[in-house]
Computed example of a mutant assay.
Amino acid sequence: MLRRVALLAAIASLAACSQDPPAPEPVETEIPEELEGVELPEIVAEDAGIGTPMEERVATIGLLNKRNNLSQELELTPGEQRRVGDVIIRLRACERTAPWEMEKDEGAFVQMLVRERGTQSEFRRVFSGWLFKNKPSINVVEHPIYDVWVKSCAMEFPGEE
């Protein structure tokens, strides 16, 4: 009985700890004189995006046929698709990190469709997701014949040289 009481007391004390503390009251402050004349940066709408608009970006995608060891580079813009033999590669988006960010990477949202055996025009989606140039193991295209990877995403950021 004593154990049950101790257990219930412990549970009650833990439940009391999980309550959020009250939010602090706002404090009105003065703007320092040296900052009163400083021009504030223009507010950018959230949907405006930074850098090259998506439809103007160009991704270079590598495609490897493991059977014959032939590889190709495909240059696609978002929304574009290209058929190479029994494979269709679709590009939905491409991104790269901003020049001021420390860890550089490039990625693309790719869909890969492969023609079904014994058919002429039936394709099955075997991959749909983000692929990253510098971290290919994050999301892997698992197909016995074809491999797809991101080589680059051409886009610019404001102020970039």
Rank of each mutant, 00 (worst) to 15 (best):
D105E: 12
R125D: 01
C94R: 08
G79T: 05
K135G: 04
K133Q: 15
M112P: 00
E156F: 10
E30C: 03
R4S: 12
S121L: 09
D86F: 01
L74C: 04
F127I: 07
V87P: 06
F109L: 11
P22Q: 10
I61V: 15
E80R: 04
T52P: 00
D147H: 10
K133C: 06
Q72H: 12
P26M: 08
P22G: 04
Q81K: 15
L131P: 05
I138T: 05
E103G: 01
S128T: 09
P24D: 09
E39D: 10
R96K: 15
R67I: 04
C17W: 14
I11D: 02
N139M: 13
T119G: 02
P158I: 04
L40M: 14
I145F: 04
E101L: 12
D47V: 08
G51A: 07
A59Y: 01
W130N: 06
L40V: 09
P22S: 08
Q111P: 00
V44E: 06
R3T: 12
A59L: 08
V126Y: 02
E75H: 12
E55G: 04
V110Q: 06
I88Q: 00
A16N: 10
M112R: 02
G79C: 00
M102Q: 14
M54N: 12
R82L: 08
P53N: 11
A9S: 14
D105F: 05
A16S: 15
G129I: 04
A98H: 11
R115P: 00
M155L: 15
A93E: 15
L40N: 02
S121Y: 08
R83C: 03
V58R: 05
P32E: 11
E42M: 03
A23Q: 13
L63T: 03
N139F: 07
I50M: 13
L70Q: 14
I31Q: 06
E56N: 13
E28A: 13
L35P: 05
A6T: 07
E116M: 14
I89V: 15
M112T: 02
R125Y: 02
L7M: 15
E160D: 13
R92A: 07
E160R: 09
P78W: 07
S13Y: 11
T119D: 05
T60N: 03
S137Y: 10
L74Q: 06
A16K: 04
E80I: 02
N134P: 01
S137R: 13
N139V: 04
K66V: 03
M112Q: 06
C153F: 09
E42G: 01
E116C: 09
L2F: 05
V27S: 06
V38D: 03
E75Y: 08
L64F: 05
R4V: 12
E80G: 03
P99T: 08
D47S: 13
